[in-house]
Design a protein around this nucleic acid. Structure first.
Lengths: 202, 202
DNA sequence: TTATATACGGAACGTCGTTCCGTTTAGCAA
DNA sequence: TTGCTAAACGGAACGACGTTCCGTATATAA
């Protein structure tokens, strides 16, 4: 998705331990950002990753670098799952499963919202990255589900993304509580099963 | 405006040096907030005020306490000036002078905007304080100017406040530059002098 | 003037971001 | 396997900062 990460082309350009550590750093940062926000101490992230702070700063010179890398990595993981789900479930089910997965993605991003709106120009590209990856991913699932008659047509992928985003981002609501109930309502509302008709036709 | 500050009623309740220091602290914080934002180091503020950090923390235990106190103090100073100007100038002139004064107030508050929108509940009362003080102050000047025919009628004080606020708060614009030019246009637009007619009638 | 509550100042402590460099090690070649 | 070298590591060290604490100074009342 990005350029090469120094693995496939030619001889080993990046040492294996370096890549392992980068991975551990991103994993640790993801967990700690979710738990304590994006301002969590650098030492804490390095410790959880099992590396020294020097390694953290060498790989991610600024806090924004790390935040952006974590964000993109999770976006990529979430969109990749759309493909997996689509190939292992009926379209309607795949769509529902992925929307729940997306809900978890949003719920884990609470700490990020503040950084996004902080005015730091380093984060300007993130909303675009968000949309350019999620919109096609959802569109694929949605189209497939519409094709087999599992959900109604006429839903704009981006509007659905925003709707769930707004539901899941409600401050103070815990991920497993009311939020997911609301999202389930939304998912149910998409369905076009026997015995259900669009509200307008009632 | 607040409760008593321990001066007028009964015997001296607060030591004179304490009040002097509080004043110096607020004055120093005002200058440093304007220059470096509301996250400026506590030591720097204390040093400029000529007191120790202990004194700063005794008087303003949290950063929000200091920010709020500075904000209210400046609001009070700006509204008080409305009265002074009204009693020393013709109504139309008093209005123009005060609007320029208000523009300077807003321009000095750039650092505050971020704190205001930080979600800290300590700042929730500030927008109300802003409006409840500025709106009557401007309304008085405006009414007087309308009465003598210096400016057109039908202007809502709060909308004018917001208009200037939006002009003066444009990021990157220096207080003495384009911003004041735009505000002057606005002030001119208010005037109802011979030879000018409202745009709609042209 | 003296007593005392009040307020002051700044050293001290812990946390954090960031840098720097001596040490370790992955990858390659012989 | 062994040695070599460049890459990468790790964590001590430094400075800035928030915050606390208490010995000292002083404003005020008697």
């Amino acid at each position: 998705m990005d350029g090469d990460h120094g693995q496939e082309a030619g001889g080993p350009r990046v040492r294996a331990d370096a890549r392992r550590n980068e991975d551990a750093l991103l994993e640790a940062a993801k967990a700690i950002f979710a738990a304590s926000g994006v301002d969590a101490p650098a030492r804490e992230i390095a410790a959880r990753a099992g590396v020294g702070v020097g390694t953290l700063y060498r790989r991610f010179p600024s806090r924004a670098d790390l935040v952006i890398a974590v964000f993109k990595r999770e976006v990529d993981a979430c969109t990749a799952e759309a493909v997996v789900l689509a190939s292992g479930h009926p379209p309607g089910e795949a769509l529902a499963l992925w929307l729940r997965r997306f809900t978890r993605f949003i719920a884990a991003k609470r700490g990020l919202a503040q950084a996004l709106h902080s005015g730091d120009p380093a984060f300007q590209a993130l909303p675009d990255y968000f949309r350019q990856n999620f919109e096609p991913a959802l569109a694929g699932l949605l189209d497939a589900a519409v094709d087999v008659g599992a959900v109604r047509s006429g839903i704009e992928p981006y509007e659905l993304l925003r709707a769930i985003g707004n539901l899941a981002a409600i401050k103070g609501a815990e991920p497993e509580g009311e939020t997911s109930v609301m999202v389930e309502l939304l998912i149910d509302g998409l369905r076009l099963s026997a015995g259900k008709v669009p509200p307008a036709a009632g």
